[in-house]
Structures are given as structure tokens and as C-alpha cells.
Nucleic acid binder design. Sequence first.
DNA 1: CTGAAAGCGCTTACAG
DNA 2: CTGAAAGCGCTTACAG
Lengths: 330, 330
Amino acid sequence: MTIHDVAAAAGVSISTASKALNNTGRMGAETRERVKRIAGEIGFRPNALARGLLSKRSFTIGLLTNDTYGRFTLPVMAGISEALVDHGVSVFLCAIEDDPALGQVHVEAMLDKQVDGIIASGKRLDRRLPVDLSSLPVPVVYAFTEGTENSVTLRSDDAQGARLAVEWLAQLGRRRIAHITGPEDFFSVRERSSAYREVAGDFEPVLYGIWAESWGHEAVGSIWGRPGEKPDAIFCGNDQIARGVVDALRERGIRVPEDVSVVGFDNWEIVAAQTRPPLTSIDMGLKELGREAGLTVLALAEGRPIEPGVRKLPCRLVVRQSCGGMSPTE
Amino acid sequence: MTIHDVAAAAGVSISTASKALNNTGRMGAETRERVKRIAGEIGFRPNALARGLLSKRSFTIGLLTNDTYGRFTLPVMAGISEALVDHGVSVFLCAIEDDPALGQVHVEAMLDKQVDGIIASGKRLDRRLPVDLSSLPVPVVYAFTEGTENSVTLRSDDAQGARLAVEWLAQLGRRRIAHITGPEDFFSVRERSSAYREVAGDFEPVLYGIWAESWGHEAVGSIWGRPGEKPDAIFCGNDQIARGVVDALRERGIRVPEDVSVVGFDNWEIVAAQTRPPLTSIDMGLKELGREAGLTVLALAEGRPIEPGVRKLPCRLVVRQSCGGMSPTE
DNA sequence: CTGAAAGCGCTTACAG
DNA sequence: CTGAAAGCGCTTACAG
């Protein structure tokens, strides 16, 4: 089924058929309708390859990611796809681990296929993908990974997210708020911990460790193991740590949230919802970030002007039960 | 940079350039080499759109999935991508939730883009995707979702996986093996539980429930709450249930694996590795399944004959610490 | 051994 | 108001 078939069936030339279907050119309204009707009847669908050859637009973009685990990329991906499907744009998925050679292969495959743009996504704000995207013939948007000079980069506003968490604890009457978090060499850890310090003061030095339940456990052990006043709230660097913290507190007979409020970060459903009690957490809005990234490459691909630089997207507090209190929005 | 530029720079016609680059036709070896060298120098890369228009092959396939969560699809996806990237095939990701209209939109977008084939993937062996793929003009392979009559379907061998688990427990000397699992209306639950019964006998009726830690907890409560001999091993329907079971046992002062061995299913790293002790679990080999699915659509797309029907891929036992014992392969 | 020509399926000036 | 022609970037019979 090609446009030839449509033209033949409608008794017009292929140029007329084309113009009828694209609502361009000038012709009798009745001719246009007839062509359209017949195209519908015989199930004509234009070949995107042929169309792309002419228009220099493939209605295709590539998503490059090194987050094989999918924890961060998955929501970003969902957002991108959701935003673009309405515009007829499809997404190539390119998982490159941390392999530069594999990255190169995927980038070349994408360019061969004439993608209209590329979104680079990662699992860390302060790391680059292992492939150079700085001088490609197509626009590139960085989402949740470090971009190059003068690029467009989208990231979550971790400082604002941390403030949200700590202010929520303060608002619930908590005054002795501790902070147990991940490795200090993570940019987001530093962002979150300085925001924490601004709001909470320095009741307790920040406890840096690793992104694991076991570290949450261990940190609770060390806080409760030494003398002195105990926290009445703990702001955790991610949900896994928070889960370890909650479990450790329960094992010590400390009630959450009655005695101690706990708030996590990431709002990772599988962890946050299965914790007893379920975790109040900060959501980085990765799906929204993906949506924005999608619309941004699209704009760039269409030649619309986009201000380069880093754009921070706001985080959101998701209230469950580990802090007490009720969602301010409910 | 088009083939015209290559031809001009090499001083040959575009047909000769094309043949030189594709190693077809006949020409002086030296001409061929010169064309190739020049193409390399000016960085020529053939336009896949133009090529696809002629060859009727886009070197593109579509992955349709309703597993937004990504738990099952993610490894399948990784396998597909890994298998196909070497063949120059790129993958369109189409997340359709359970929305038939969205599914339709994605299928049409893929067909417009002339995909060489489609892989349909899901989160349940006994459910169909909400879109009819039975009479498409391109080959379809079903992976971890129910296929249509006479289609090619790839799935894990859940019965074999369950046997693996129970035999492992038996081999460790466990004789009173219980089975706590998910909802009975899941095909995979029935597969696993009948395999369990075959091997373990009926020491204890199978406990059906939901796929959650809380159910693992509760089930342990009910087994240990009533009189009679207690199990010395528990085979769980998935890792979340297993984690609930392990936590509940620990809270009762029952040692894992000394008193009771526990084995999970899915080998979901984030759950299995964070459990204390880490879970021995059954891996469904979803990445391998993805790889197979990729190679299978590819074969179909190239017209190679593939036997229709359901192909079951073997599961694998991953030994951690929740059963005791050491991996048979180590 | 090499090149001119036709064609993949479509769109878009340009004539009429 | 409608159609013939050229062309997007490539490949492939077919002549020479």
C-alpha cells in the first residue's frame, strides 16, 4: 500500500494525493475528502523512511544511558516516551553500561538512522557518560548526568528537595534532626547535606557512608551507642538507608514515627512502600524530568531556540507514615 | 556527506562508489581500496533511511511492553539490545501500560517506521498485551507474555526452576519444606507449586497469598502460630515474600539458615542482596530470554525459518546465604 | 572493469 | 484547481 495505490484508487495523480493527505496545496474540498476517505479505506500509512529522506526529520530520537539497573533511567524514559509519542516521535534505547566502545557503536547507529536528537541520561549528576557527545550533528540534551560546556542539562534540585524534607520534620515539631547519607564524593550528597545544615543547624555531624540498608543500620547503632541526647528525626540520603534506619530503630524498640521521624530520598516505591512503616520520601520528579528532556530535544530538533545551561527541576515531598503528619496537599 | 561526495572525491561514479563500499560488483582492487579510504577520511556514513527504503529492511525493531515498573522488562531489554547491537539493529522502546489506545498508537508508529519486527514483552506469562499483534505485516515474538495461536513465544521454565530450588533444599538435608507463594490465579504460581509438590511431597499445604513482604511475614506467623512440627525450609514464590519470611523468622529468634533454609524466586538483586542474610534465589534468566528473543525476530525478519510454539528457557539457582551450602558450580 | 539509468516512497516547487 | 518532473540518498540490474 503506497501513495501510488491511493492515487490510482482515487483517480488522481500522486502529487494530488500527497497534497490531499497533507492538507497542503489547493484543490477541490471534495477531491481532498475523497482521497482521504480512500486512503483510510485501503489502510494507507505513509512510509516514514521515505518521508524522512525528504524532510530531514526522522521523528526518532535516541536515549543513551549507562543506568542498566534502571532505577533512575526508567522513570526518565517513561517521561520522555510519554511526552514524545503524541508528537509521533519514537525513542531508540541505547544501554551502554560504562563501555566507551559500546557507547560509540550506539551513537553511530543512531546517527546512521538519522535521529533528530539525543538525550543522554545517567545515574549520577556529577558523572559524564563514557562517550563524547559535544560535536554531533544533532542536538543533545543531558538529563540526570553531567553535560558539556554550553549544553542543555536538566537535573533535580537536590538542595530544594533536602530543604523540603527537613522543613517538613521541623514543622512536625522535630528539633533534633540527624542526617545519615551516602558517600561524600557524590555531588547530590553534598547538595543535600549543605541544605540540611542550613535548615537544621548542626545538632549532629552528618554521617556519610554508603547507599545501603546496612549503613543505615550501622549508623543508628553508632548514634544510639554513644552517650548524649538522641535525635527525634532522621533525614536519610536515600530510601535504602532509610529502610535500614527504620529496621534498626524497630529492633531497638524505638517507635517510628512516635519517637523518631524518618524521611527518605528517591521515593523508590519498592523500598519506600515495603518498609514498616512505609517511608515518607522525597521524589525527584524524574518522570517530569524525562518529559521536559523530551520536549526540549524536540524543540531543538525543530530549530526553536533553547537557552543553554543547567535547569533544575523541583522535588516533591511524598507523605507516607514514617514521619507522622499528613500530606500538606491533602 | 553523501555518497556523491565520496564519488566526487574519489573520481568515480556513485554506482562504483556504492559497489566499492559494499564489496559488491567487480572493479580494480585498487579502485575499491581508494574509495574506501576516501570514504573513511571524509567521514562518510550511509544514510540508513535511504538504504532502508531500497532494501525493505530498516535495521530497527520495536519492543512493546506493559511492564512500566521495569522489573521484568529491564533485563529482557538489556538482552535484546545486547544481542542486536552487533547486527546493527536498534530498538524502539514502547511502554504502553495497560492502555489499548496507547498500544495501538505505538504499533502504528512502529509500522510507519518500517520496523523489521516486534517483540512483545510483559510482566506475566498468562496475560496478553492489550493490543492485537496477530496479523501484522512484520514478524512478532512474544517474550514473557502470552502469545497468540501459532506464534513464537519465549518463557522461563518455572517448573524446572521450582524443582531446582526444592532439590537444592533436599540436597542440603531439608525434609520439611513449606511453600509460601503468590496468588493462585497466576500461571507461574501454579507451575511452581505443582513442581514443588512433586518433589517435596505434601508436608504442608501450599500457602497462597500476595506478592508482598507483608504476606511472607504473615504466613510465617500462621505456620509458627499453630501447633505441630515446623518446617526446616521454606521455598518462596518470589524474593519479596522471601524477604518477609526471613525478617519474620529473625524476629522470632529462628536462625536462617541454621534452623530454617529459605529460597526465593526472581533473583531480584535489590531485594535478594539486601536481605539479612542475602537470599539464595532462582534466576529466570530474563537477559538470556531477551537475547534469544532478539535473535529470533532477527531470524524471522531475514526470512529464516523458525519453529512456532512455546520455547521454555531454563532457570538457574543463585546461591547466597539464606540456605547454607555452597554453589554447586563453585 | 565502469557508469548511466531506473527506482525505493514520498514531497514540493513549477507549469499549465 | 491539477499533474509532470525533479529530487531526498542510496542500490542494482543493465549496457557498454
